[in-house]
Design a protein around this nucleic acid. Structure first.
Lengths: 208, 208
DNA sequence: TCCTGTTTTGACCAACTGGTCAAGAACACG
DNA sequence: CGTGTTCTTGACCAGTTGGTCAAAACAGGA
Protein backbone atom coordinates (compact mmCIF):
# COMPACT_ATOMS: atom_id res chain seq x y z
CA UNK A 1 0.00 0.00 0.00
CA UNK A 2 1.28 3.37 -0.94
CA UNK A 3 1.03 6.14 1.61
CA UNK A 4 1.96 9.75 1.64
CA UNK A 5 3.17 10.28 5.17
CA UNK A 6 3.46 13.78 6.50
CA UNK A 7 6.64 13.26 8.44
CA UNK A 8 7.26 16.94 9.00
CA UNK A 9 4.07 18.75 8.03
CA UNK A 10 5.16 21.74 5.96
CA UNK A 11 3.96 24.51 8.26
CA UNK A 12 2.01 27.19 6.55
CA UNK A 13 2.43 30.85 7.48
CA UNK A 14 -0.78 30.69 9.52
CA UNK A 15 0.29 27.56 11.37
CA UNK A 16 3.60 29.03 12.33
CA UNK A 17 1.99 32.22 13.60
CA UNK A 18 -0.65 30.43 15.69
CA UNK A 19 1.52 27.71 17.19
CA UNK A 20 3.92 30.46 18.16
CA UNK A 21 1.15 32.56 19.73
CA UNK A 22 -0.05 29.51 21.67
CA UNK A 23 3.38 28.59 22.96
CA UNK A 24 4.03 32.17 23.99
CA UNK A 25 0.69 32.43 25.80
CA UNK A 26 1.19 29.04 27.41
CA UNK A 27 4.64 30.08 28.62
CA UNK A 28 3.12 33.13 30.25
CA UNK A 29 0.41 31.13 32.02
CA UNK A 30 2.31 27.94 32.90
CA UNK A 31 5.25 29.92 34.26
CA UNK A 32 2.99 31.66 36.76
CA UNK A 33 0.42 29.00 37.60
CA UNK A 34 2.26 25.74 37.08
CA UNK A 35 0.81 22.92 35.02
CA UNK A 36 -2.18 22.05 37.19
CA UNK A 37 -3.00 25.65 38.01
CA UNK A 38 -3.09 26.77 34.39
CA UNK A 39 -6.24 26.38 32.30
CA UNK A 40 -6.74 26.11 28.57
CA UNK A 41 -9.17 29.02 28.76
CA UNK A 42 -6.48 31.28 30.20
CA UNK A 43 -4.01 30.22 27.53
CA UNK A 44 -6.58 30.64 24.77
CA UNK A 45 -7.51 34.11 26.00
CA UNK A 46 -3.85 35.12 26.27
CA UNK A 47 -3.21 33.83 22.76
CA UNK A 48 -6.31 35.51 21.34
CA UNK A 49 -7.75 32.23 20.11
CA UNK A 50 -10.74 30.07 20.99
CA UNK A 51 -10.22 26.98 23.10
CA UNK A 52 -11.18 24.52 20.37
CA UNK A 53 -8.75 26.34 18.13
CA UNK A 54 -5.92 25.68 20.57
CA UNK A 55 -6.76 22.02 20.41
CA UNK A 56 -6.61 22.13 16.64
CA UNK A 57 -2.92 22.92 16.91
CA UNK A 58 -2.05 20.83 19.96
CA UNK A 59 -3.71 17.55 20.92
CA UNK A 60 -3.88 18.35 24.64
CA UNK A 61 -2.88 20.67 27.46
CA UNK A 62 -0.07 18.30 28.33
CA UNK A 63 1.26 18.38 24.77
CA UNK A 64 1.65 22.16 24.98
CA UNK A 65 3.47 21.85 28.28
CA UNK A 66 5.78 19.12 27.04
CA UNK A 67 6.48 21.13 23.91
CA UNK A 68 7.57 24.09 26.03
CA UNK A 69 9.73 21.97 28.33
CA UNK A 70 11.44 20.23 25.44
CA UNK A 71 12.24 23.47 23.70
CA UNK A 72 13.45 24.90 27.02
CA UNK A 73 15.72 21.97 27.77
CA UNK A 74 17.44 22.44 24.43
CA UNK A 75 18.30 26.10 24.81
CA UNK A 76 18.61 26.25 28.57
CA UNK A 77 21.84 24.30 28.65
CA UNK A 78 23.57 26.14 25.83
CA UNK A 79 25.69 28.37 28.08
CA UNK A 80 27.02 25.33 29.93
CA UNK A 81 27.67 23.45 26.69
CA UNK A 82 29.79 26.36 25.55
CA UNK A 83 32.12 26.09 28.55
CA UNK A 84 35.40 25.62 26.71
CA UNK A 85 37.96 23.23 28.22
CA UNK A 86 40.68 25.04 26.29
CA UNK A 87 39.67 28.55 27.37
CA UNK A 88 41.05 30.56 30.23
CA UNK A 89 39.39 28.88 33.28
CA UNK A 90 38.36 31.89 35.35
CA UNK A 91 37.20 33.77 32.28
CA UNK A 92 35.21 30.75 31.04
CA UNK A 93 33.34 30.41 34.32
CA UNK A 94 32.76 34.14 34.66
CA UNK A 95 31.30 34.15 31.16
CA UNK A 96 29.05 31.27 32.12
CA UNK A 97 27.77 33.18 35.14
CA UNK A 98 27.16 36.28 33.05
CA UNK A 99 25.28 34.37 30.37
CA UNK A 100 23.11 32.61 32.95
CA UNK A 101 22.25 35.95 34.53
CA UNK A 102 21.42 37.40 31.12
CA UNK A 103 19.00 34.54 30.64
CA UNK A 104 17.33 35.43 33.93
CA UNK A 105 16.99 38.97 32.65
CA UNK A 106 15.84 38.15 29.13
CA UNK A 107 13.86 34.95 29.71
CA UNK A 108 12.39 35.08 33.22
CA UNK A 109 9.28 33.18 32.15
CA UNK A 110 11.36 30.27 30.93
CA UNK A 111 13.21 30.25 34.24
CA UNK A 112 9.96 30.21 36.20
CA UNK A 113 8.51 27.48 33.99
CA UNK A 114 11.52 25.36 34.83
CA UNK A 115 11.33 26.20 38.53
CA UNK A 116 7.65 25.30 38.63
CA UNK A 117 8.31 21.95 37.03
CA UNK A 118 11.08 21.11 39.50
CA UNK A 119 9.05 22.27 42.49
CA UNK A 120 6.30 19.87 41.47
CA UNK A 121 8.78 17.03 41.49
CA UNK A 122 9.69 17.31 37.79
CA UNK A 123 7.07 14.73 36.71
CA UNK A 124 7.60 15.53 33.04
CA UNK A 125 11.32 16.26 33.15
CA UNK A 126 12.90 13.75 35.46
CA UNK A 127 14.11 11.78 32.46
CA UNK A 128 15.92 14.74 30.93
CA UNK A 129 17.40 15.65 34.32
CA UNK A 130 18.82 12.18 34.88
CA UNK A 131 19.91 11.89 31.26
CA UNK A 132 20.94 14.91 29.24
CA UNK A 133 21.53 17.23 32.16
CA UNK A 134 23.40 14.71 34.28
CA UNK A 135 25.67 13.75 31.38
CA UNK A 136 26.48 17.34 30.54
CA UNK A 137 27.21 18.18 34.17
CA UNK A 138 29.44 15.14 34.46
CA UNK A 139 31.39 16.20 31.40
CA UNK A 140 31.86 19.77 32.54
CA UNK A 141 32.64 18.75 36.11
CA UNK A 142 35.60 16.80 34.76
CA UNK A 143 36.79 19.94 32.99
CA UNK A 144 36.48 21.97 36.17
CA UNK A 145 38.29 19.29 38.13
CA UNK A 146 41.16 19.52 35.67
CA UNK A 147 41.32 23.27 36.09
CA UNK A 148 41.48 22.84 39.85
CA UNK A 149 44.21 20.21 39.56
CA UNK A 150 46.17 22.58 37.35
CA UNK A 151 45.84 25.28 40.01
CA UNK A 152 43.96 27.56 37.63
CA UNK A 153 40.96 28.08 39.91
CA UNK A 154 40.18 27.62 43.59
CA UNK A 155 39.42 24.16 44.94
CA UNK A 156 35.62 24.00 44.89
CA UNK A 157 33.46 20.93 44.37
CA UNK A 158 32.41 21.18 40.71
CA UNK A 159 28.84 19.92 41.23
CA UNK A 160 28.09 22.34 44.00
CA UNK A 161 29.87 25.14 42.18
CA UNK A 162 27.45 24.63 39.30
CA UNK A 163 24.49 24.44 41.70
CA UNK A 164 25.64 27.73 43.19
CA UNK A 165 25.76 29.40 39.81
CA UNK A 166 22.28 28.15 38.98
CA UNK A 167 20.87 29.17 42.35
CA UNK A 168 22.39 32.63 42.34
CA UNK A 169 21.45 33.55 38.79
CA UNK A 170 18.00 31.97 38.56
CA UNK A 171 17.03 33.49 41.90
CA UNK A 172 16.78 36.88 40.23
CA UNK A 173 14.21 35.57 37.75
CA UNK A 174 12.25 33.19 39.98
CA UNK A 175 12.15 35.39 43.08
CA UNK A 176 11.96 38.65 41.17
CA UNK A 177 8.86 39.75 43.08
CA UNK A 178 10.56 39.25 46.43
CA UNK A 179 13.77 40.95 45.32
CA UNK A 180 11.87 43.99 44.13
CA UNK A 181 9.72 44.11 47.27
CA UNK A 182 12.82 44.09 49.46
CA UNK A 183 14.86 46.56 47.42
CA UNK A 184 11.98 48.98 46.96
CA UNK A 185 11.62 51.30 43.99
CA UNK A 186 14.54 52.92 42.25
CA UNK A 187 16.58 49.77 41.83
CA UNK A 188 17.53 47.71 38.79
CA UNK A 189 17.92 44.30 40.45
CA UNK A 190 19.52 42.57 37.51
CA UNK A 191 21.99 45.32 36.86
CA UNK A 192 23.07 45.31 40.51
CA UNK A 193 23.18 41.52 40.50
CA UNK A 194 25.50 41.61 37.51
CA UNK A 195 28.07 43.68 39.34
CA UNK A 196 27.59 41.79 42.61
CA UNK A 197 27.99 38.33 41.13
CA UNK A 198 30.94 39.47 39.05
CA UNK A 199 32.74 40.51 42.20
CA UNK A 200 31.61 37.45 44.09
CA UNK A 201 32.83 34.91 41.58
CA UNK A 202 35.99 36.82 40.78
CA UNK A 203 36.95 36.53 44.43
CA UNK A 204 35.65 33.01 44.82
CA UNK A 205 37.31 31.42 41.82
CA UNK A 206 40.74 33.00 42.23
CA UNK A 207 43.13 30.27 43.42
CA UNK A 208 44.73 31.01 46.77
CA UNK B 1 -26.88 43.56 75.04
CA UNK B 2 -24.82 40.90 76.70
CA UNK B 3 -22.80 38.66 74.48
CA UNK B 4 -20.49 35.84 75.14
CA UNK B 5 -17.88 36.32 72.44
CA UNK B 6 -15.56 33.47 71.65
CA UNK B 7 -12.51 35.59 71.05
CA UNK B 8 -10.10 32.69 71.14
CA UNK B 9 -12.18 29.51 70.97
CA UNK B 10 -10.72 27.16 73.58
CA UNK B 11 -9.57 24.41 71.24
CA UNK B 12 -10.57 20.98 72.28
CA UNK B 13 -8.23 18.03 71.96
CA UNK B 14 -10.06 16.93 68.81
CA UNK B 15 -9.91 20.38 67.25
CA UNK B 16 -6.21 20.69 67.82
CA UNK B 17 -5.55 17.27 66.32
CA UNK B 18 -7.66 17.87 63.21
CA UNK B 19 -6.60 21.42 62.42
CA UNK B 20 -3.03 20.19 62.73
CA UNK B 21 -3.68 17.24 60.41
CA UNK B 22 -5.30 19.58 57.90
CA UNK B 23 -2.47 22.11 57.96
CA UNK B 24 0.07 19.34 57.62
CA UNK B 25 -1.77 17.78 54.68
CA UNK B 26 -2.31 21.17 53.07
CA UNK B 27 1.40 21.97 53.39
CA UNK B 28 2.22 18.74 51.60
CA UNK B 29 -0.20 19.45 48.75
CA UNK B 30 0.20 23.22 48.36
CA UNK B 31 3.98 22.96 48.44
CA UNK B 32 3.95 20.64 45.44
CA UNK B 33 0.98 21.91 43.42
CA UNK B 34 0.74 25.56 44.30
CA UNK B 35 -2.51 27.18 45.37
CA UNK B 36 -4.46 26.81 42.15
CA UNK B 37 -3.13 23.34 41.42
CA UNK B 38 -4.09 21.92 44.80
CA UNK B 39 -7.60 20.59 45.46
CA UNK B 40 -9.56 20.21 48.65
CA UNK B 41 -10.07 16.55 47.80
CA UNK B 42 -6.32 15.95 47.73
CA UNK B 43 -5.87 17.74 51.03
CA UNK B 44 -8.78 15.90 52.61
CA UNK B 45 -7.46 12.54 51.44
CA UNK B 46 -3.96 13.36 52.72
CA UNK B 47 -5.40 14.42 56.07
CA UNK B 48 -7.64 11.37 56.32
CA UNK B 49 -10.80 13.46 56.58
CA UNK B 50 -13.84 14.06 54.42
CA UNK B 51 -14.03 17.26 52.39
CA UNK B 52 -17.02 18.70 54.30
CA UNK B 53 -15.08 17.98 57.46
CA UNK B 54 -12.18 20.14 56.25
CA UNK B 55 -14.62 22.96 55.73
CA UNK B 56 -15.89 22.54 59.25
CA UNK B 57 -12.46 23.57 60.52
CA UNK B 58 -11.55 26.13 57.86
CA UNK B 59 -14.03 28.37 56.04
CA UNK B 60 -12.37 27.97 52.63
CA UNK B 61 -9.42 26.68 50.66
CA UNK B 62 -7.91 30.14 50.72
CA UNK B 63 -8.18 30.33 54.51
CA UNK B 64 -6.05 27.20 54.83
CA UNK B 65 -3.46 28.66 52.48
CA UNK B 66 -3.35 32.00 54.25
CA UNK B 67 -3.06 30.22 57.58
CA UNK B 68 -0.01 28.34 56.34
CA UNK B 69 1.63 31.43 54.87
CA UNK B 70 1.09 33.46 58.01
CA UNK B 71 2.57 30.78 60.23
CA UNK B 72 5.46 30.42 57.79
CA UNK B 73 6.22 34.13 57.68
CA UNK B 74 6.56 34.17 61.45
CA UNK B 75 9.07 31.37 61.77
CA UNK B 76 10.84 31.76 58.45
CA UNK B 77 12.58 34.96 59.43
CA UNK B 78 13.73 33.85 62.87
CA UNK B 79 17.31 33.08 61.83
CA UNK B 80 17.71 36.54 60.34
CA UNK B 81 16.13 38.19 63.38
CA UNK B 82 18.72 36.47 65.52
CA UNK B 83 21.62 38.06 63.64
CA UNK B 84 23.33 39.80 66.53
CA UNK B 85 24.87 43.24 65.89
CA UNK B 86 27.15 42.69 68.88
CA UNK B 87 28.34 39.25 67.86
CA UNK B 88 31.47 38.36 65.95
CA UNK B 89 30.54 39.39 62.34
CA UNK B 90 31.87 36.45 60.32
CA UNK B 91 30.63 33.97 62.89
CA UNK B 92 27.19 35.62 62.97
CA UNK B 93 26.78 35.39 59.22
CA UNK B 94 28.15 31.85 59.04
CA UNK B 95 25.64 30.84 61.70
CA UNK B 96 22.89 32.45 59.69
CA UNK B 97 23.89 30.46 56.60
CA UNK B 98 24.03 27.26 58.59
CA UNK B 99 20.61 27.81 60.13
CA UNK B 100 19.06 28.62 56.78
CA UNK B 101 20.51 25.43 55.32
CA UNK B 102 19.19 23.45 58.27
CA UNK B 103 15.76 24.81 57.51
CA UNK B 104 16.08 23.59 53.93
CA UNK B 105 16.95 20.18 55.32
CA UNK B 106 14.29 20.04 58.04
CA UNK B 107 11.46 22.00 56.43
CA UNK B 108 11.68 21.57 52.67
CA UNK B 109 7.92 21.71 52.25
CA UNK B 110 7.77 25.12 53.88
CA UNK B 111 10.51 26.32 51.57
CA UNK B 112 8.64 25.05 48.51
CA UNK B 113 5.39 26.58 49.73
CA UNK B 114 7.14 29.92 49.90
CA UNK B 115 8.80 29.44 46.51
CA UNK B 116 5.47 28.57 44.92
CA UNK B 117 3.85 31.68 46.32
CA UNK B 118 6.62 33.92 45.03
CA UNK B 119 6.68 32.27 41.61
CA UNK B 120 3.00 33.04 41.26
CA UNK B 121 3.69 36.68 41.94
CA UNK B 122 3.12 36.48 45.71
CA UNK B 123 -0.59 37.45 45.45
CA UNK B 124 -1.19 36.64 49.11
CA UNK B 125 2.18 37.68 50.49
CA UNK B 126 3.18 40.85 48.74
CA UNK B 127 2.10 42.85 51.77
CA UNK B 128 4.32 40.92 54.15
CA UNK B 129 7.22 41.15 51.70
CA UNK B 130 6.98 44.91 51.38
CA UNK B 131 6.35 45.32 55.10
CA UNK B 132 7.77 42.91 57.65
CA UNK B 133 10.44 41.41 55.41
CA UNK B 134 11.60 44.69 53.93
CA UNK B 135 11.87 46.31 57.39
CA UNK B 136 13.84 43.42 58.80
CA UNK B 137 16.20 43.37 55.84
CA UNK B 138 16.72 47.10 56.11
CA UNK B 139 17.60 46.76 59.77
CA UNK B 140 20.05 43.92 59.26
CA UNK B 141 21.56 45.55 56.19
CA UNK B 142 22.53 48.48 58.36
CA UNK B 143 24.25 46.08 60.75
CA UNK B 144 26.15 44.44 57.91
CA UNK B 145 27.15 47.85 56.54
CA UNK B 146 28.60 48.71 59.92
CA UNK B 147 30.59 45.50 59.95
CA UNK B 148 31.97 46.33 56.52
CA UNK B 149 32.85 49.88 57.58
CA UNK B 150 34.66 48.44 60.59
CA UNK B 151 36.64 46.17 58.28
CA UNK B 152 35.28 43.06 59.96
CA UNK B 153 33.99 41.45 56.77
CA UNK B 154 34.55 41.87 53.04
CA UNK B 155 32.88 44.71 51.18
CA UNK B 156 29.73 43.11 49.76
CA UNK B 157 26.39 44.81 49.10
CA UNK B 158 24.25 43.76 52.08
CA UNK B 159 21.03 43.28 50.13
CA UNK B 160 22.59 41.07 47.53
CA UNK B 161 24.60 39.23 50.14
CA UNK B 162 21.32 38.29 51.82
CA UNK B 163 19.77 37.33 48.46
CA UNK B 164 22.78 35.10 47.87
CA UNK B 165 22.33 33.35 51.17
CA UNK B 166 18.65 32.79 50.48
CA UNK B 167 19.27 31.57 46.94
CA UNK B 168 22.08 29.19 47.87
CA UNK B 169 20.39 27.61 50.86
CA UNK B 170 16.80 27.41 49.59
CA UNK B 171 18.02 25.94 46.31
CA UNK B 172 18.71 22.67 48.08
CA UNK B 173 15.09 22.41 49.24
CA UNK B 174 13.29 23.83 46.21
CA UNK B 175 15.40 22.14 43.54
CA UNK B 176 16.02 18.99 45.54
CA UNK B 177 14.77 16.78 42.71
CA UNK B 178 17.19 18.34 40.24
CA UNK B 179 20.12 18.21 42.65
CA UNK B 180 19.53 14.51 43.31
CA UNK B 181 19.05 13.74 39.62
CA UNK B 182 22.39 15.37 38.79
CA UNK B 183 24.36 13.93 41.68
CA UNK B 184 22.98 10.45 41.24
CA UNK B 185 22.62 7.94 44.07
CA UNK B 186 25.06 7.67 46.94
CA UNK B 187 25.08 11.35 47.78
CA UNK B 188 23.74 13.31 50.74
CA UNK B 189 23.12 16.66 49.03
CA UNK B 190 22.48 18.63 52.18
CA UNK B 191 25.47 17.27 53.99
CA UNK B 192 27.72 18.13 51.05
CA UNK B 193 26.08 21.53 50.72
CA UNK B 194 26.84 22.21 54.36
CA UNK B 195 30.55 21.73 53.87
CA UNK B 196 30.55 23.50 50.51
CA UNK B 197 28.73 26.60 51.69
CA UNK B 198 30.81 26.74 54.83
CA UNK B 199 33.95 26.96 52.75
CA UNK B 200 32.36 29.31 50.25
CA UNK B 201 31.21 31.87 52.79
CA UNK B 202 34.32 31.56 54.91
CA UNK B 203 36.37 32.60 51.90
CA UNK B 204 33.86 35.16 50.70
CA UNK B 205 33.33 37.03 53.95
CA UNK B 206 36.95 37.25 55.02
CA UNK B 207 38.06 40.86 54.58
CA UNK B 208 40.99 41.20 52.19
C1' DT C 1 -15.29 31.85 -10.76
C1' DC C 2 -15.39 27.22 -8.47
C1' DC C 3 -13.34 23.67 -5.69
C1' DT C 4 -10.57 21.46 -2.28
C1' DG C 5 -8.07 21.63 1.81
C1' DT C 6 -7.29 24.42 5.92
C1' DT C 7 -8.86 26.95 9.78
C1' DT C 8 -12.32 28.46 13.14
C1' DT C 9 -16.09 28.11 16.14
C1' DG C 10 -20.65 27.30 18.80
C1' DA C 11 -22.74 23.75 21.12
C1' DC C 12 -21.94 20.17 23.79
C1' DC C 13 -20.16 16.55 27.34
C1' DA C 14 -18.48 14.08 31.38
C1' DA C 15 -15.47 14.75 35.14
C1' DC C 16 -13.95 17.71 38.63
C1' DT C 17 -14.02 21.82 41.59
C1' DG C 18 -15.06 24.60 45.91
C1' DG C 19 -18.61 24.90 48.81
C1' DT C 20 -23.50 24.05 51.28
C1' DC C 21 -26.74 21.72 54.15
C1' DA C 22 -29.52 18.89 56.93
C1' DA C 23 -29.30 15.01 59.49
C1' DG C 24 -26.97 11.66 61.99
C1' DA C 25 -22.94 10.04 65.21
C1' DA C 26 -19.88 10.83 68.91
C1' DC C 27 -18.76 13.28 72.86
C1' DA C 28 -18.78 15.66 77.41
C1' DC C 29 -20.77 16.52 81.54
C1' DG C 30 -24.24 17.11 85.11
C1' DC D 1 -28.01 7.89 81.64
C1' DG D 2 -29.98 11.89 79.43
C1' DT D 3 -29.14 15.93 76.99
C1' DG D 4 -26.99 19.77 74.80
C1' DT D 5 -22.93 20.48 72.16
C1' DT D 6 -19.41 19.18 69.01
C1' DC D 7 -18.08 16.54 65.12
C1' DT D 8 -18.85 13.94 60.79
C1' DT D 9 -20.88 12.74 56.55
C1' DG D 10 -23.79 11.64 52.19
C1' DA D 11 -26.22 14.03 48.97
C1' DC D 12 -26.24 17.85 46.49
C1' DC D 13 -25.20 22.26 43.69
C1' DA D 14 -23.50 25.61 40.41
C1' DG D 15 -19.38 26.81 38.04
C1' DT D 16 -15.21 25.24 35.82
C1' DT D 17 -12.27 22.10 33.34
C1' DG D 18 -10.15 19.44 29.44
C1' DG D 19 -11.71 17.80 25.42
C1' DT D 20 -15.03 16.49 21.15
C1' DC D 21 -17.54 17.25 16.97
C1' DA D 22 -19.98 18.71 13.06
C1' DA D 23 -20.64 22.39 10.52
C1' DA D 24 -19.40 26.79 8.96
C1' DA D 25 -15.86 30.21 7.28
C1' DC D 26 -11.91 30.95 4.87
C1' DA D 27 -7.90 30.39 2.09
C1' DG D 28 -5.73 30.05 -2.45
C1' DG D 29 -4.70 27.71 -6.79
C1' DA D 30 -6.78 26.27 -11.39
Amino acid sequence: MLMTVKVQPPKTRIQRKNTQAILDAALEVFSRQGFRGATLDQIAAEAGLSKPNLLYYFPSKEAIHVSLLTELMTTWLDPLRDLDPDGEPVEELMTYVRRKLEMSRDFPRESRLFANEILQGAPRMIGALEGELRDLVEEKSAVIRDWIAAGKIADLDPHHLLFSIWALTQHYADFDVQVRAVLGPGHDPLDEAGRFLDGLFARLLRPE
